[in-house]
């Protein structure tokens, strides 16, 4: 779990986009830790949300993830 969280945070810091889809995060994790299951990535992402390191970004129809403090973090 901790290594998946680390891989997610590294990706979230490095990626050019400030918001990304779940499967982009999943692919990035698999690059570092092949064979990681989607459910494990989800669990780790949820833990990071609860630790307030990641945030959800929702358009209403789709949801993306982002690193807290990067890109738009305030209301419009």
């Amino acid at each position: 779990m901790e290594d998946i969280k680390k891989a997610i945070l590294e990706f979230a810091e490095k990626t050019k986009k400030t918001k990304f889809y779940f499967n982009e995060m999943e692919k990035a994790v698999r690059k570092v830790l092949p064979d990681t299951k989607a459910r494990a990535v989800k669990k780790a992402a949820t833990a990071l949300i609860n630790e307030e390191k990641l945030i959800y970004f929702s358009t209403g129809s789709t949801t993306m993830y982002g690193l807290k403090g990067r890109g738009q973090t305030e209301d419009f």
């Binding site: 959800y56 970004f57 929702s58 209403g60 982002g66 738009q72």
Partner: peptide
Amino acid sequence: WKHGGIVGVFGYGGGVIGRY
């Protein structure tokens, strides 16, 4: 209306839709 954003309630990734 402008849609979307980071609004929500803690721990939930759905249920709230930001609108301005």
